[in-house]
């Protein structure tokens, strides 16, 4: 049963991720990204991390992808106009990325094979209450830095998006 659910959602995640990259209509790409993220959320639940799964759905599927859709629809992009099909430099980059990917996956699988792994997370350690305790005691400082980071991001975005200052055309340089 469990392996069946895993296989179903793992396949779904990989296939929809491929569609994201390959499809030429950006709206379809975003919609299949929704499928990818929800499937990964299911995988998180199966790993015993319901909080992470909830965050994944809320933040990524709920907020970020809606934003993507908004932008795509506002700009009215129907399909990619430029086919990026590129020179030797891009092929080299793709080759190197593929090599690194294989090396990383190989290295991780090798560790799984030799059995040298960190301790598994227990349900207690990923439950919401211990998480909150850690966040507001040990990691209070990083938590507060995030607060300032968000404030700075809001101010920065306003600065970059504000209307151009009222300057007469001849002063425009």
């Amino acid at each position: 049963m469990e392996i069946g659910v895993f296989l179903l959602f793992a396949l779904l995640a990989v296939t929809s991720a491929l569609v994201v990259v390959v499809h030429r209509n950006p709206v379809y790409s975003v919609m299949s990204l929704v499928v990818t993220l929800v499937s990964t959320a299911v995988l998180f639940v199966m790993l015993g991390a319901p909080f992470l799964a909830a965050l994944q759905v809320l933040v990524y599927t709920g907020a970020i992808l809606v934003l993507f859709l908004f932008v795509i629809m506002l700009l009215n992009i129907e399909r990619e106009t430029q086919r990026t099909n590129g020179g030797w430099f891009k092929k080299l980059a793709a080759l190197i990325s593929a090599a690194i990917f294989v090396a990383i996956v190989g290295s991780i699988s090798l560790q799984a094979y030799t059995g040298r792994f960190l301790e598994a997370l227990t349900p207690e350690s990923v439950a919401i209450e211990p998480l909150a305790r850690e966040l507001f005691s040990t990691y209070l400082l990083p938590f507060e830095i995030i607060g300032l980071l968000l404030l700075a991001a809001v101010v920065g975005a306003t600065v970059l998006a504000r209307k151009q200052d009222a300057v007469s055309p001849e002063k425009e340089r």
Binding site: A152, V155, V159, L160, R162, Q164, D165, V167, E172, R173
Partner: peptide
């Protein structure tokens, strides 16, 4: 955001 501060 500061690098792009001079919006004009």
């Amino acid at each position: 955001s500061l690098a792009g501060y001079h919006r004009r």
